[in-house]
């Protein structure tokens, strides 16, 4: 079994990038200057991950205003709506409003991932929203048939993944809606079918593809996730004992398992020894080829300094697990 560590998704913006974005809005700096600060920030985030022994690394998704935004802004047929709460977080995303046929007119995150692969000394992970979560968080004002909407969404996302395939070592499709307790099990099951349809269109091998779920994990959701027969990222911090119960009951047999064991929504001190103990206990129940020790979800819910601390915990947990 190969064990690594890496963050689930984004990293909070460093203060200098926050400031630059504000200055761009108020006209104090231009796009070129913002881009300069952005690239320096991305390099800094990549270095922070590498210094802590993480592999793969992500770009930090530093310019993404929310997990759907680059896609909602770029797809034709989609406009931006009002702010809505992102699951149970005190974080808000702009709801995509579907007003025409969804089409990917141009690559969306490919340049950023290309840049990442150039600066990273390790493997790199690309992250993008999955079709079911995009669907559930959007408002459809155009399609008569939801099936047609789903087909178009899958086609648009598959085209992006196809372009990322040569650049990223791991591709992660984020699908928190697949475990959303606000949805019925029937709806979650339908979501799994939608994601299966996407996976069927991809040429990414199963040991390089992760479907990421977070903010919940319960035995019922987990049992249907296993139907995806692909790599999974699981949030082991948000559901009290239910997540461990799910793994205990169903185990994991697959190529890649990302264990969201370091809590990305809490700053209560976590010790590497405790995290390593938890990891080892879970590993007894799995026969994954690759295991990744990870944060439970994106790091957006933390201040920058606390997110840096999470990188340290991840790195030290990995060393502790590897040495035993």
């Amino acid at each position: 079994m190969e064990i690594n560590a890496g963050i689930c998704g984004n990293f909070p913006r460093p203060p200098e990038l926050r400031k630059a974005l504000d200055e761009l809005s108020s006209g104090k700096i231009d796009e070129k200057e913002l881009n300069r600060v952005f690239k320096l920030s991305m390099r800094k985030i990549v270095e922070l991950q590498e210094e802590n022994g993480l592999n793969p690394v992500t770009s930090g998704l530093l310019l993404w205003h929310d997990p759907l935004r680059p896609f909602a802004e770029s797809f034709s047929g989609v406009q931006l709506g009002g702010l809505l709460r992102f699951f149970d977080n005190n974080f808000y995303y702009r709801r995509p409003i579907i007003t025409g046929p969804i089409k990917r007119e141009k690559p969306i995150t490919v340049e950023e991932v290309g840049e990442l692969s150039q600066i990273a000394k390790t493997q790199v992970k690309a992250v993008l929203p999955g079709p079911y979560t995009f669907l559930k968080l959007s408002e459809n004002k155009f399609y008569q048939s939801e099936d047609q909407l789903i087909d178009d969404l899958i086609e648009a996302l598959a085209a992006e993944i196809e372009d990322l395939n040569g650049l990223a070592d791991i591709i992660q499709v984020d699908e928190p809606s697949l475990v959303d307790p606000e949805l019925s099990l029937e709806e979650r099951r339908k979501g799994v079918e939608v994601v299966k349809e996407l996976i069927g269109k991809l040429r990414v091998p199963s040991d390089r593809l992760i479907v990421a779920t977070y903010f919940n994990l319960d035995p019922d959701s987990y049992s249907i996730l296993l139907d995806l027969k692909t790599g999974l990222h699981l949030d082991l911090c948000s559901s009290r004992d239910k997540a461990e119960e799910a793994l205990r009951e169903y185990g994991f047999k697959g190529s890649i398992l990302s264990l969201g064991i370091v809590d990305s929504r809490s700053i209560f001190p976590e010790t590497p020894a405790e995290m390593a103990g938890k990891t080892r206990k879970i590993l007894e129940k799995t026969s994954a080829e690759k295991v990744m020790i990870s944060t439970s979800s994106w790091l957006d819910y933390l201040p920058f300094n606390e997110a840096v601390e999470k990188l340290r915990i991840l790195g030290r947990t990995l060393r502790e697990v590897a040495s035993s």
Partner: peptide, 17 residues
């Protein structure tokens, strides 16, 4: 009180700790 945490877009707030 924490360092800034994002609430949406580039808007941040400080959270009690």
């Amino acid at each position: 009180i924490s360092e800034p945490v994002r609430i949406f877009d580039n808007v941040y707030y400080r959270k009690p700790v």
